[in-house]
Nucleic acid binder design. Structure first.
Lengths: 139, 139
DNA sequence: CAAGGATCGGTAATGATTTTCATTATTGGC
DNA sequence: GCCAATAATGAAAATCATTACCGATCCTTG
């Protein structure tokens, strides 16, 4: 498991605000929106501006320490990435629960498509959403 | 090949505005944003409001006659879907050129992940982007 | 301790999308 | 063809997430 310190070293100066943002992201465990994370930080007493939350999350993504998805409303949701590998998730639309899924098949497929397409710098986004067992039961 | 008429019948009343929006989407051939489509319509003399463009595109997506992706800025891009099958595309980040790709592998993978996950109503989004041969050459 | 640069945060700006609501157009029944 | 019921339209205003500004603040290094 990685420590917040590892992430902080990657994104510039170590400040109280960034420390709490990274900590909150790790504590949350799953995908969260910037706004929600900011609310959580404020609730627990941290004095951090929304702007700083956005900047810190963007820096983490840039450094490869966080994954991003878009929810249906277009909002970006962030999740701390403990391991350096590119990873895909299955995300519950109701409660936000996320679980990593086996990604090898898609990775291979994407690489092959890139190869035969003639396109350069091919990137891919894969998002799986559904209703987790608990949410399915309670609906 | 499908006719605009087929699409119009799926989304409610047949109006001059919807006809021109669907026509413009088909003519465009690839992925377009609502704003760009609206501009194109205005340029060619059609009197259509921007929100009618949005509503028509949303209705097409709802009816399964259009695909949607998000570009890097979060804007939604729409493409007319001539055939009823779910389809994935490889999209050029520079010029917007889009080409359908073989999707069977991902479809199968997504179905299997859904099966073993315990999640219900699993949906997936797969987006491939890159630089097409022409744009790669001119950069 | 001072200077320089990174960082912060409140606020205003941006940009896409949606809502509101009064007006207009389409459709099914006569 | 005519008419009322109702869906559709559009201009402007409202949302919502995200970003840009910019003056104040905090580290860090010398």
């Amino acid at each position: 498991m990685s420590e917040p310190a590892d992430d902080l070293d990657l994104i510039g100066r170590r400040t109280a605000q960034r420390t709490s943002v990274v900590g909150a992201l790790i504590d949350h465990g799953g995908f969260v929106g910037a706004r929600a994370l900011h609310d959580a930080l404020r609730t627990q007493g941290a004095r951090v501006g929304l702007n700083t939350v956005y900047r810190t999350l963007a820096a983490l993504v840039e450094a490869g320490r966080a994954d991003v998805v878009r929810d249906r409303g277009g909002e970006r949701l962030f999740r701390h990435r403990a391991f350096p590998e590119h990873q895909h998730y299955l995300l519950c639309r109701a409660c936000g629960l996320s679980t990593p899924v086996d990604s090898e098949t898609v990775e291979t497929w994407a690489a092959r498509v890139a190869d035969i397409s003639g396109f350069a710098e091919v990137e891919h986004t894969v998002e799986l959403t559904g209703l987790c067992p608990r949410c399915r039961a309670s609906s």
